[in-house]
Write a protein that binds this DNA or RNA. Structure first.
Lengths: 239, 239
DNA sequence: TCAATAGTGTCTATAAGACATTATTTT
DNA sequence: AAAATAATGTCTTATAGACACTATTGA
């Protein structure tokens, strides 16, 4: 029993709210060995959830996360709790928004959630150890087929999806889902998955190359039954 | 003496961090009756600060704010603490970012600050009561001439300025600094103050009118020694 | 040769930016 | 008439989107 639960209502009202960090971590595919909750494994937006083992919302699915640690920054806490749940290192992590809904029950514990969003690259996910799959309380879901969620985690995921889509329009987000070397068709497919609609290959190519953030690797992807595509790597704009 | 201060170090480490809300509240001019800390009163970006009356950072200037209340949302707390400090109702309020820097001293209290940013319109500031000026611990400063600040409030203000500028580029932010009816020259001047550089009057006019968010009032601003300008009001896009 | 995808070229519509020109008011 | 700013017009350049066309591979 936690310290919190020993307090009466009046005491709880004087307390500072509990502060938790939660992370919405997107990947294009569930990692190897992962437990998945979806019928097909097509590309799409996937994210890991953790089954709660205690009240409130016992047995419901929730975002990976946990309470703030006294000696860690918020970002460090987000990172540590995400890696603890999935055993995989994300390639990107950024703060999303803070949620502090008021629970109407006088008995309820006041909770402030500082939400983060993260991205896993194909390489991150491929390197997952079999050990990660052993935790039956962690599973991967498609973002368009989520279970009922604990707390306001449904709202948090919706906010993360909106942020991911708006960022994709102007920032270099998509390449982080891929390997360091990728073709323009692969990059376009990521954009299409995130945005939810098809893009013109010719125009997409021209826009990406005009941004000056892609660099030819000199390699190409042979073995396909058509003209092989050149591969590129992402190179941040330097001025 | 607060409950917190009675705890020893080990106990503090088990505690949840304190959660405070702070607000960066921009206005084009300091309100009537306000105490100001700047030599001239030209238009610019101004914001209210509160002098701390207790440790830590006793006597330093800080953003208006306060601890989260058990029965209020974060936004409600931001609003209430801002109005308590300035006695003026803001025309806009939105969450900015959460800051959770780790104080390196083992003795230090861990603090998470959920920052908001707000806007005051000319009308908001004009309606300020004389009573607000009586509080000697509240004063208005120009954003480009700030004093030393408590906590990480300098970083918070810098983040708010960046957000304000990027929002101005694509969202209808500027009109909230003005009265409900305004001329295109006034609106342009606000953009210039926020962005920090001059804009072409002709092109600015065409872009604003093309956005379909401005509506003619039918009035114009006479009394000037040149052709009087038509006034407009902001009308959110409906589809 | 055909199928399939990589990659290029071209046309149109739209918008930004620079800047000239006309319009309307007070002094 | 002069000064000052409002409001409009025009030209250039850049970019998005639609879509036709060429290039290169394996079967």
């Amino acid at each position: 029993m936690s310290d919190w639960q020993k307090l009466n209502v009046a005491e709880r009202r004087r307390q500072s709210p509990r502060v938790a960090v939660s992370t919405v971590a997107f990947a294009l595919r569930p990692p190897a060995h992962a437990r998945v909750h979806a019928k097909d494994e097509e590309q799409g937006l996937w994210l890991p959830l953790v089954r709660r083992v205690r009240a409130p919302f016992k047995d419901a699915w929730a975002l990976p996360g946990g309470p703030t640690a006294w000696n860690q920054t918020l970002t460090q806490t987000a990172h540590a709790t995400l890696v603890a749940a999935t055993r995989i290192e994300p390639s990107y992590l950024e703060q999303l928004y803070s949620f502090g809904s008021v629970e109407r029950s006088a008995d309820a514990e006041r909770l402030v959630t500082i939400a983060y969003w993260a991205q896993y690259s194909a390489r991150d996910a491929a390197g997952a150890t079999a050990a990660a799959g052993e935790d039956t309380n962690v599973a991967w879901f498609r973002a368009d087929a989520l279970p009922d969620l604990a707390f306001d985690h449904g709202e948090i995921i919706a906010t993360a999806l909106t942020r991911l889509r708006s960022r994709t329009a102007y920032a270099a987000v998509a390449h982080r889902f891929l390997d360091p070397e990728f073709t323009l068709a692969q990059l376009r497919e990521v954009h299409e998955i995130i945005l939810g609609h098809p893009l013109d290959p010719a125009n997409f190519r021209r826009q990406m190359l005009a941004s000056k953030t892609l660099e030819e690797t000199g390699h190409s992807l042979a073995g396909v039954k058509h003209r092989p595509a050149k591969t590129y790597r992402y190179r941040p704009e330097e001025d």
